[in-house]
Design a protein around this nucleic acid. Structure first.
Lengths: 142, 142
DNA sequence: CAAAGTAGTTGTATAATACACTTAAATGTT
DNA sequence: AACATTTAAGTGTATTATACAACTACTTTG
């Protein structure tokens, strides 16, 4: 059973949910809640970003993301760099602690998926991951 | 492109979300919000039920479902029959209006999926529906 | 029959969200 | 160059789905 496949699946599910729903009352899958997990993941994979870019990525209101990044900053998972080219804007970047938490959460979530899909065939998991990814991309273009 | 396949997909997605998250701030896909849609669908497919059974089905707190069914009753989509065998309990049943709304919403949601997946192959849509269904069942047994 | 358990409701708190407004900086127009 | 418009971010407020706790009325059990 491929660990990478399951990592992909759990990420795609988290994204699917983010696209389709709003909140998730404290229903944590790992140490970080979903919004924190997705934000940190986005910053990790696409580099530092401002509130506006993050809000667009996740189809959330800027005010919502502003509060979420604020919370992440408070916890020391990200820090804010002023954009040298635009006095209004900032770039959020991961701290070492943020990177550590992200990895820890990713591992916890992946383990959860490992357990849930332990009886699925390799082919099923691969296919499911691919299709969720495709669906999430389809949804994005809407 | 099979309409039935897409109906199945949208139902499974709604279920997936219900399982994994909590709320969805007014993010309606049709006339009914997700909780109303799922509750009416459950009553339609599994027959009249009380608050407790519905809460268990959707892994929600009884108080949450109590409020949701209350709202549905208020809108005239369900009515409450006292359980003849248990003076504390009730059975919620669909009204004609509720059945109509359910069907309308189902159609709207399915159309949305039709549109989203218009470029997917028949095989992909079938497979995605199957896998989501399988995943939801897997999740249930947790 | 009294005690414990249960179905449902209601009160209260929480959390993620949107929308409206604000502030400060950037951009565009005459 | 001055003023108007736009824009990035933050803040105030309302909404909503949810959980937990307390309560009521009924049922089951010892």
């Amino acid at each position: 059973m491929s660990h990478e496949t399951n990592t992909s699946i759990e990420l795609e599910i988290a994204l699917l949910i983010r696209r389709l729903t709003s909140i998730s009352t404290g229903r944590k899958f790992g140490t970080l809640d979903r919004s924190a997990y997705l934000l940190l993941g986005q910053i990790e994979s696409h580099g530092s970003a401002g509130v506006k870019a993050l809000a667009e990525e996740f189809r959330l209101d800027i005010s919502t993301v502003s509060r979420q990044t604020s919370a992440l900053e408070q916890k020391g998972y990200v820090y804010k760099m002023p954009d040298p080219e635009d006095g209004r804007a900032y770039f959020y970047q991961l701290t070492d602690e943020g990177r550590r938490m992200l990895e820890e959460t990713r591992q916890q979530r992946t383990e959860r998926i490992d357990e849930l899909l332990k009886d699925w065939s390799e082919d099923e998991r691969t296919r499911f991951g691919e299709l969720l990814a495709k669906f999430n991309r389809t949804y994005l273009d809407d």
